[in-house]
Write a protein that binds this DNA or RNA. Structure first.
Lengths: 195, 195
DNA sequence: GTGCTTATGTAATGGAAACTAAAAAAATTC
DNA sequence: GAATTTTTTTAGTTTCCATTACATAAGCAC
């Protein structure tokens, strides 16, 4: 058993609260006052548990990908590449416009701007977006090997295209687009599919 | 002639300097210290000329659309809708990755996050993005009337699709994508074109 | 119970943020 | 040249930011 006074809050619950604040306001926009208030704790507890604001943000990103990113693996598990991407786009259209949480993917909305030299946050987000694109590419490479995609197909380019549409959907959602509108985009995007 | 002590700086030049700072760091990320330093003036001069930070930002957005948005009208002036969109996507791929200025469209990168109730900046950016989408839609509606697009085409949906790809390209560019990669995306996106 | 260790609440710290008061300076008008 | 108008410079102001010192509280080992 742990020695010392036990923690009076649940770290995961607190993280979920912090996640929503970061998602809604972005990294810079989320102040420690808002975060601690939403988490129901005081600053020293936050610092003891998560190090600092940046540490808390990274943990919140992990949590975000766990909670909200599951639909991606789910979609990519579809039997064919075409179906996988279809589901990916369609699910994203729904997810990004859901009520009850901010609109658009947090990896896009939480911070796009920043200096080259400074912002570690910007780089962290870009790296995670890249990882998402890689997952799609790998699925498409597999599909090509399995003959599910034509021999002439370019998995990397296709993955980049799909990812670009996904990122665009986040921007659209953040700007107030509806799920119906984004589903229409998904449908249209699929017309570029090579068969 | 104007009475009183004449302004010692050129407002448009100063605006250009401010624009670059906002573009690079976003609205929140750009501090008044950075802005005034880049503009070569002191805070009171800024406030006298532009009202406040938000006013300066809106003026910078005007300037941005004047300077960087010209390729859009240029592209939309192409004889056919297909060619117009082709040019739009291709030009965006180049523009968004150009050296010498920040990557990605400022209307996307300067601020996606923020509260529903608070951020007027977020809304301003969303409104300008919507205006861009409307321009594309209008061009496509004309094309449909002129028989340039099939009778079954849906200009609004098509414009939304194209805009979504454009927004996605901005996110990709902000994340370090190259012009070559984005041109590939543009090419792929055109495969969805209805003919 | 007494130590030991860790967490908590309060309140403060230094710094940076947007913005401005006030006086000096530079032009015009009379 | 004196009065007027506007800009500039300097030096603040207030507010909020992330982060932490410090004293107290709450659990375990003995």
């Amino acid at each position: 058993m742990a020695v010392g006074r036990p923690r009076a809050f649940d770290a995961d619950e607190a993280l979920d609260k912090a996640l929503v604040v970061f998602w809604r306001k972005g990294y810079d926009g989320a102040s420690l006052a808002e975060l601690t208030s939403a988490m129901g704790i005081n600053p020293p507890s936050l610092y003891a548990a998560f190090g600092n604001k940046e540490g808390l943000f990274r943990r919140a990103l992990d949590r975000y990908e766990e909670q909200q990113g599951c639909f991606i693996d789910e979609a990519l598990a579809a039997p064919t590449a075409r179906e996988a991407v279809e589901r990916l786009l369609c699910n994203a259209a729904s997810k990004h416009c859901e009520e009850g949480h901010p609109q658009g993917c947090m990896l896009v909305t939480a911070g796009l701007s920043g200096d080259e030299e400074s912002s570690a946050i910007r780089e962290e987000l870009a790296a995670r977006r890249k990882a998402g694109e890689d997952d799609i590419r790998k699925r498409l490479e597999r599909a090509k090997r399995e003959g599910d995609l034509p021999k002439t197909a370019n998995p990397a380019a296709l993955a980049r295209y799909v990812t670009t549409v996904l990122r665009g959907m986040s921007v659209q959602a953040a700007g107030g687009a509806t799920a119906r509108e984004l589903k229409q985009v998904a449908e249209m995007a699929m017309k570029a599919w090579p068969d």
